[in-house]
């Protein structure tokens, strides 16, 4: 496989995953703010900007932090790299560049998602926004399904490797921004507002039902943290993403004979995470842990690039 192709597939995976994540983030925030009997207001949208790391870009627009403004900013605004439309643009550009490595279905999924934003300058009101992000999610799901139906070869694995690494990053950021909600200092935990916030987090990673299955004791912050960090059953947890990266690198090594620092790094990370108890993470400092994780994930990203000669 061409190095450029591998690199484009990997980035395609990252951007599709990012698209999906922003869509979920917007969806959860709309629900938290607009559709909730207790609107969370500005704080909810400010936090969505923080999670997607677009707060400073948004500040530059000079707009006020309202549902309309932020929802538009995160969906249809192509002036910054943190919006769905830009993410899709990047995904589609990478997909176009490797058009031959994709099946028609996989390409069509990306292209259809991209066409949703053709000449669209506003996501509309709350319901329209939900419809839009739902449509985006449907297309990214379609893409995901198509990727799983593709030949089990390098093309699939590079896409999935990109997704796994992006997903780990997204979940870590989500937790990092929301950790003060999860672990409020000196406040009574379990109030109504907190419940809404926790639910938002779970919605963003599609884990509301999973939570109920895995924990019988109702919403507790320590459980939410445990679920998102340490439970490999949840596809968007750090544990699952880290494991998936190891698995895919293994498959790639078997097929290409290329085995190197990325494999070692991913395996080490996986072993450490498997041995670790989420309680210990909380007691030692969640924020520090997540910052370290994000940095290490970035290191792995670079090692992948070196190992497969992306540049």
């Amino acid at each position: 496989m061409l190095s450029r192709t591998a690199s484009s597939l990997y980035w395609l995976g990252r951007y599709v995953e990012r698209t999906d994540f922003i869509a979920r983030l917007v969806e959860a925030t709309v629900r938290l703010d607009v559709l909730s009997p207790r609107p969370a207001g500005e704080a909810a949208w400010a936090s969505a900007l923080a999670v997607s790391e677009t707060d400073s870009a948004f500040a530059k627009t000079g707009q006020s932090v309202t549902q309309n403004n932020v929802a538009r900013f995160l969906t249809v605004d192509s002036s910054h790299s943190g919006s769905i439309v830009r993410s899709l643009d990047m995904a589609r550009n990478n997909a176009r560049a490797v058009r031959t490595a994709l099946t028609k279905e996989a390409w069509t999924g990306i292209n259809r998602a991209w066409l949703l934003f053709d000449n669209r300058s506003s996501p509309g009101g709350a319901m329209a926004t939900l419809n839009l992000v739902e449509a985006v999610k449907a297309e990214t799901r379609g893409f995901e399904g198509a990727v799983h139906r593709m030949l089990r070869n390098q093309a699939t694995w590079f896409i999935r490797l990109g997704q796994a690494i992006e997903r780990a990053d997204n979940t870590a950021r989500l937790l990092d921004v929301k950790y003060h909600i999860l672990l409020p200092e000196g406040e009574r935990v379990g109030g109504v507002v907190d419940r809404d916030q926790w639910t938002t987090i779970l919605q963003t990673v599609s884990a509301v039902t999973a939570y109920r299955w895995l924990y019988s004791e109702g919403l507790k912050p320590a459980n939410v943290i445990d679920l998102l960090i340490a439970r490999p059953e949840l596809p968007r947890s750090l544990a699952a993403s880290v494991e998936e990266a190891v698995d895919i690198l293994n498959l790639l090594a078997k097929r290409t004979g290329l085995h190197g620092e990325a494999d070692r790094m991913a395996r080490n990370r996986h072993m450490r995470l498997a041995k670790m108890a989420s309680g210990a993470v909380i007691s030692r400092g969640l924020h520090q842990y997540l910052q370290g994780f994000i940095a290490e994930n970035d290191e792995l990203h670079r090692a992948v690039g070196r190992q497969f000669k992306f540049t």
């Binding site: 061409l2 190095s3 450029r4 004979g257 290329l258």
Partner: peptide, 29 residues
């Protein structure tokens, strides 16, 4: 479309290098 339906690589200039008067493509391996 043509590369795909022939089952051959679609390359850009940056994927190719000439060395010793021979053309090579840069792959992950």
């Amino acid at each position: 479309f043509l590369a795909d339906s022939m089952g051959v690589e679609l390359v850009e200039a940056a994927d190719l290098v000439v060395d010793d008067d021979v053309v090579w493509m840069r792959t992950i391996a």
